[in-house]
Write a protein that binds this DNA or RNA. Structure first.
Lengths: 251, 251
DNA sequence: TTAATTTGTGCGATATATGAACAAATATCA
DNA sequence: TGATATTTGTTCATATATCGCACAAATTAA
């Protein structure tokens, strides 16, 4: 790509939008400038542009994003068949399991939720399509990383901030790579409170009819209800069934 | 705002992102140019910028959005307290009702879903946070429009494409305004298959502790299970309870 | 093959970013 | 409290980047 094929005003504007996610919903020009590292004058122009287009409102002091901004992410969710195809299967899965079911894809070192059927609230954080979690310590992340060639998985781990969320979190790269091999051979991953104390989850890959892993689905349950050791026994048959149904419809 | 405070390169780029939502996930440069009405050279630069930043991938012929694009909409969902606060209440509501519960806000002539607790699939379309429906024929839309001053509600109807989705859809502005008055006085709206045949729903406003309507929540049920006439009897107590709980936590 | 469409690129005209300057607002301290 | 320092929003001139046109190259269709 040539230098002049890059619209830096656009790139700067996108950076400004993302700055809102990191903290609160209200940002002053100076705050946005600090978060993005862009010049105050530049940030101001981006924010005024967002306001002019209705993606943000300005009260003279703070800018706030409006729901119109959801159109941007929704362009992906609506245009990509995967979330739409998976959602009904997920609804059924969650209902049968009596626990939350989710689907995600890998984006760099993180898993991104693309669909979710929620039965009850068990996590402290609110997960919706678009939510992100570190891949290395999430059940769906383990499944997705296990599907990569080992060299790639290793590269992802190398640029991951392997910080322990709980005392259970595995953070040693070699141990994680061994875990990926185990996940690959058994076809599922179980997480025992590595992400959040009190939460267990089990995930399987979603494959298309050519056998390529295109996403992962999981079921999460409170450790108090379902011990990690029981996760596979309780939920693997349901997950396998959903996995099989999806393999037939995904090309 | 001064002319020079508008970054048109940014605005053009956003338009290109939205073009993906309207059709499929793959767009060629020429297609994107047609959809946006922008010059091909401009669209090409925007798309290459998106690709360079990882928001899209380019196979030399077609551009496809990547899940990274979800960061943009998610900046709103994560930064705005409303979805996060409402979600657990919605989960509980859906579980008690045994049917899907959703929350939305008004954006122009449309309602935008900001949270959803899905129990089972009843609609032909897949609703996720960011999904949009015409406000005039959705239960939450009726509630949100009823909360506006009548002149504003009238103005919204004036710029709405009042097309009937089903034979039941009310499309006469005066009839709709009368319906809004009824909704305002009774405090809830019931929709009987105006959006989709076989689907009934009931919505109430979500008010903050100053009595301002900041969102709407609803329960949807298949008409085969719950007749429109029974909706209020069956679900209004649950909705009122959730409404009351939210009023206490929203400032 | 020709014709039609799509894509890539150079260039002049136009729009935008930059950083400094300044005023207004806010915070700090005696 | 009042004086001073700091932060913030805004404007401006100018250097730089982008736009959209026109044309060429490549691809696709007939």
């Amino acid at each position: 790509m040539r230098e002049t094929d890059f619209v830096s005003g656009f790139a700067r504007g996108l950076k400004v939008i993302e700055a809102f996610g990191e903290t609160q919903q209200r940002l002053s020009i100076a705050e946005a400038s600090k978060l993005t590292g862009l010049d105050r004058a530049t940030v101001r122009r981006s924010l005024l542009t967002l306001a002019e287009l209705g993606y943000a409102v300005y009260d003279g002091k703070f800018f706030t994003l409006t729901p119109k901004i959801l159109r941007l992410g929704h362009a992906y969710l609506a245009a990509t068949p995967l979330p739409t195809i998976i959602q009904p299967h997920l609804d059924q899965l969650a209902e049968q399991a009596g626990h939350n079911a989710s689907a995600s894809v890998l984006d760099g070192t993180e898993v991104v939720y693309i669909a979710r059927a929620s039965q009850r609230r068990v996590m402290s954080i609110n997960l919706t399509p678009g939510s992100r979690l570190p891949a290395f310590c999430a059940s769906m992340g383990r499944v997705l990383l296990a599907a990569l060639p080992e060299s790639e998985a290793r590269a992802v781990l190398a640029r991951t901030d392997l910080k322990a969320n709980t005392p259970n979190t595995k953070t040693d790269p070699e141990e994680l790579l061994a875990e990926f091999r185990r996940v690959r051979s058994q076809g599922y991953a179980v997480i025992d409170q590595e992400l959040e104390i009190g939460l267990c989850s089990i995930a399987v890959p979603v494959e298309n009819n050519r056998g390529q892993t295109v996403a992962a689905i999981n079921i999460g349950a409170p450790a108090a209800y379902v011990a990690a050791a029981e996760m596979a026994e309780r939920f693997l048959p349901l997950l396998r069934e959903t996995q099989k149904a999806l393999r037939l419809v995904l090309r």
